[in-house]
Design a protein around this nucleic acid. Structure first.
Length: 595
DNA sequence: TAAATCCGCCTTTTT
DNA sequence: GGCGGATTTA
């Protein structure tokens, strides 16, 4: 695949105007984006004027690497390739003071936001006022406030427009309303915007993504990339037939050049246990012909991995002349590093030290470890603070509420602690101050309390060490290291659980959703029963289309071999329940299947 | 204040 | 069947 095909060529060279590139699964989307940038550069465009927005850091990073290999590091770093969120974060850290926040604002994650929303009884107006009082911004707020900034201060918008004259957006089918608005604002002066995506792979509607953005994009030119370089024609035909049933889509048909390949296997097990053991047996067969990480087992929901995991642990097989027990696997979708309680606690301390208005951070750790500030005391204090409309922190510093003497003393100690911490963080290395803080508050108490097993405690301590060294690393590398920058970076860079050892030779297990963008030689799709695929809560007309797209995404991950499985009976919340095959299976032509 | 028990729910999760 | 959140109990 050295040369670009004709539609890829067209997508690369149409560099002016509003361009819609409908990039089917496996059609060389990233390659087109990279070549587009190369094409712009070859015409003498200043790399600083090119902006590529992605959804994930991984995608941004991959693009940067591929660009770097073509034009070298120096030019590649001049091109801005970033996620929507970090792009907006950079702007807001400079300009948000125009909107009544300070540039030290905190980033609230979904839980922080939810808790606050409950507090104000889901009153949007009060919520927004509270966010400002806390000097905090939510994920989507990063984008909404950037829009607001651009609308209220056209001068700032124009500066940004003049800087970024060529805009490219990856995975455009996943944009939500504010991302759509942002893209329109950014491109409205020079009118150069190229959006790349696949409406058939829009699977995040439930998170606010709007397929209509890509379905109704006002395009000067639309280019369809329909040549697939990933899968056999059998797999593609099946996927094409399935997705054709959707009404809301740009019609397209993927074509394969890889030959027919083998037919799709269908396997109907008696129950979920037998399904799992049968799959493991088949995996062992394929494992003799290829590295394990070219094989994936995909499922609709995380709960379906359980039986597989136990079957994998029990699997016995011969390798290098001796018998082994337990097939190595890697499972995606554990708790992200930043979501772990010990990391959230320490981040909350850092957030509070950086931004005393950050009330969610304050409330999270005011009694962690337990220091005698009870829920009741907190209730009294927060009620008073709402009534007086004072920041909670100021109230704590200047306690004028009737609480018990014990509580008063405890709060006084806490306030002193934070003041001491502030001085520490201002006067020594951040990571050293953090080490001091962990000792000072005796966080070990929390670990012993929360983790009952030795293993669990060890895990938490490891995570904390990891967190400290992350801070040290950050401090080393950053231009102007700051706590708020560090803590929000943690949320923005979804640092997933550290990938297991360097041994890449592990079977891959993940949900359909997490498989998007990946490919495997052999794919098993399991639990293909009505109620799971499509999910029982997604059976209405519109969500059914998204469920179908999700199944389509899952099918098109397979390069050479696709195996579909289901059970006649499956334990549902502890009880056996009969199952019927997924209605989507009926949409695959029979001649492509074997059972 | 913390432990113990109970109740209600159950998807997917790019930042 | 199992987890998180709420409520009760020591």
């Amino acid at each position: 695949m050295e040369k670009l095909n004709s539609s890829q060529e067209e997508a690369v060279t149409k560099s002016e105007g509003r361009i819609l590139v409908l990039a089917g699964a496996g059609s060389g989307k990233t390659r087109v984006i990279i070549h587009r940038i190369l094409h712009l550069l070859s015409k003498g465009t200043d790399p600083k004027q090119i902006l590529g927005l992605t959804f994930t850091n991984k995608a941004a990073e991959e693009m940067r690497m591929r660009l770097q290999s073509k034009v070298g590091k120096e030019v590649a770093t001049e091109v801005t390739l970033s996620t929507f969120h970090s792009f907006c974060m950079k702007i807001l850290r400079k300009e948000i003071h125009h909107l009544g926040y300070t540039n030290e604002f905190s980033l609230y994650d979904d839980r922080d936001e939810k808790r606050l929303a409950e507090e104000v009884e889901f009153d949007e107006v009060r919520l927004k006022a509270c966010m400002r009082a806390h000097n905090a911004v939510t994920f989507d707020g990063l984008i909404q406030l950037t829009i607001q900034l651009f609308q209220e201060f056209p001068g700032i918008l124009e500066k940004v427009q003049d800087r970024f004259r060529y805009l490219m957006i990856d995975e455009y089918q996943d944009t939500n309303h504010s991302q759509f608005l942002l893209a329109e604002l950014l491109s409205s002066k020079y009118n150069n915007i190229c959006v790349v995506g696949d409406d058939d792979q829009s699977i995040y509607g439930w998170r606010g993504a709007e397929v209509k953005n890509i379905l109704h994009f006002r395009a000067d030119h639309t280019i369809k990339l329909q040549e697939n370089y990933r899968s056999t024609s059998t797999i593609l035909q099946a996927a094409n037939c399935l997705i054709k049933k959707n009404k809301n889509r740009h019609p397209k048909t993927l074509i394969s050049y890889l030959g027919e390949g083998e037919r799709i296997e269908i396997f109907h097990a008696a129950n979920e246990i037998e399904e799992a053991t049968a799959i493991v047996t088949k995996v062992l067969e394929y494992a003799e012909k290829m590295p394990l990480n070219e094989i994936a087992i995909l499922y609709r929901s995380n709960a379906l991995s359980r039986n597989l995991e136990s079957a994998l642990l029990q699997a016995t097989y011969r390798k290098d002349g001796s018998w082994k027990r337990g097939l190595p696997y890697e499972i995606y979708g554990g708790l992200a590093f930043a979501e772990r309680s010990e990391i959230k606690d320490l981040s909350a301390y850092l957030r509070l030290i950086a931004n005393p208005l950050d009330q969610q951070a304050l409330l999270r750790i005011i009694n962690v470890p337990a220091r005698g500030i009870s829920e009741k005391t907190l209730d009294t204090v927060t009620a008073y603070n709402r009534q007086k409309n004072l920041p909670l922190w100021n109230l704590l510093e200047n306690l004028e509420v009737t609480v018990t003497d014990r509580a008063k003393a405890a709060i006084g100690n806490f306030v002193q602690l934070i003041h001491r911490a502030k001085r520490r963080f201002a006067s020594q290395k951040l990571y050293e101050a953090l080490q001091w803080l962990i000792q000072e508050i005796d966080y070990e108490k929390v670990i012993q309390n929360e983790a009952t097993t030795d293993k669990g405690q060890l895990f938490k301590r490891d995570n904390i060490q990891e967190f400290i060294s992350n801070l040290a690393q950050y401090e080393e590398g950053a231009q102007n290291p700051s706590l708020q920058d560090f803590t929000s970076g943690y949320l923005l860079e979804s640092t997933k659980a550290k990938k297991g050892g360097q041994d890449k030779n592990k079977l891959q297990l993940m949900t359909f959703h997490s498989a998007k963008g990946l490919e495997f030689t052999v794919c098993f799709l399991i639990g293909l029963e009505d109620g799971i695929v499509p999910h029982e809560k997604g059976m209405q007309e519109t969500s059914l289309e998204e469920e179908r797209r999700l199944f389509y995404v899952a099918m098109t991950r397979a390069k050479r071999k696709l195996i579909l499985s289901m059970a006649r009976q499956r334990k549902k919340w502890g009880k056996d329940a009969p199952c019927t095959p997924s209605r989507f299976l009926l949409e695959i032509p029979k001649n492509l299947l074997i059972s």
